[in-house]
Design a protein around this nucleic acid. Structure first.
Lengths: 210, 210
DNA sequence: AGCGTTCTTTGACAGTCGTCAAGAAATCCT
DNA sequence: AGGATTTCTTGACGACTGTCAAAGAACGCT
């Protein structure tokens, strides 16, 4: 009986924990939304609460403080952003297919999720000033490196050669292109964005050996 | 006589304007210092004033508002940052000399001026959210592109070939490397920084035709 | 139905923010 | 030397910030 009772309580506890965690994730989504809209510097707890269906006080019921909330939001962001090209890699039969799929996805998300992307760069930059974000940012940046590396190494494989750079350099290169394209995209400099899109394909070839 | 008087007044006016402008530049330096220390999100006018020899009220005597002050600071930052490699380009006699000089300067300023550099990336990112910084940022970014292009096109010339990319792509590539190196530098991941330094030289060759 | 727990709202707190006005201090000019 | 201007300090304002406590609402269980 005690066992049954324990099991019950455990189940209750687990359900409550799950509910707790669910609400945390829900509020973190509102946080991401707010950050993407306003940027880190102008994001306040009351603004976040207004983007949710709750009042501002509830944030301190689910999170220890503002940092805890934003950290959770950042970790949650990562989950969607580090697997973006996996389908393209898995489904491409030829090098050309992979390259075109990658470039399309690259500039597709650039345009569709521009606000989310600027949020990421904002938070990554914040970590240059605030050490408490540093570890999460480094973790996510590492996963992004791996994501890019999966694309490039598979592209090299399909091309019958090997990448000419390290993971870090390949990532830095393509991420630099993405950032410049994002700046131009948000500045409505469409022809510059198109120019970079055309060049990305060639750039990928430059990153291969031979 | 009226002419003489006018000339006098003009001289006075000009001197006052010069003095006015001098003090503006002085306060803008304190602003840059503060931004480099704290980042945009945590930089307040009182903090800026504390980094100068004046009290906070004086900022509104010389600047219309906070935005005016920061804009002036950004414009001033540009003056030092877009000619960094010009000497290296002018003095290099061989391709190898240019490449080594560039890489040394690249990672030299990365370490010596890390706080200034993170400030630039912070403000550039701010412009993704705040349109009022957009034009100044685009202007500076364009000048940085030209700066990198002077290096790369001269390097190609000394190597007897041509760059394989556009200005934009070359800049984006190298700027991406710089940003990643800066993150690693400020995270005290020294071996990763060294790794990128070794790779930068090879990357430059990848950006040349043939 | 009623009790206990969990969840949410409300309102207040101590600070900080950008801005500005009033006056002190310094400087300039004759 | 003394009046006029420029420069700077001080203190205040309303608004906004993160945080927290108290009280109310909703829920689950017996």
């Amino acid at each position: 009986m005690t066992e049954v009772a324990e099991t019950k309580q455990e189940r209750i506890a687990r359900r409550q924990v799950d509910k707790f965690e669910t609400r945390r994730r829900e509020l973190a989504v509102a946080t991401l939304h707010t950050l993407a809209d306003l940027g880190y510097a102008r994001t306040s707890l009351r603004e976040i609460a207004q983007n949710s269906e709750f009042s501002h006080g509830v944030l301190h019921y689910y999170f220890a403080d503002k940092r805890d909330l934003i950290t959770q939001a950042v970790r949650q962001y990562e989950e969607v952003c580090v697997t973006r090209y996996d389908d393209v890699v898995a489904n491409a039969g030829t090098a050309e297919e992979l390259r075109n799929g990658f470039v399309d996805m690259f500039f597709g998300t650039l345009k569709a999720d521009a606000h989310l992307h600027r949020l990421w760069y904002d938070l990554r930059n914040q970590s240059l000033f605030d050490e408490s974000f540093r570890n999460d940012v480094l973790d996510i940046d590492g996963r992004r490196q791996e994501m890019i590396w999966r694309v490039l190494s598979r592209y090299a494989e399909l091309s019958g050669t090997e990448p000419a750079t390290s993971r870090a350099a390949a990532y830095a290169t393509l991420d630099g292109v993405f950032q410049l394209a994002l700046l131009h995209q948000l500045s409505e400099m469409d022809e510059q964005v198109v120019g970079l899109a055309e060049e990305l394909a060639r750039l990928m070839d430059l990153l291969l050996a031979k």
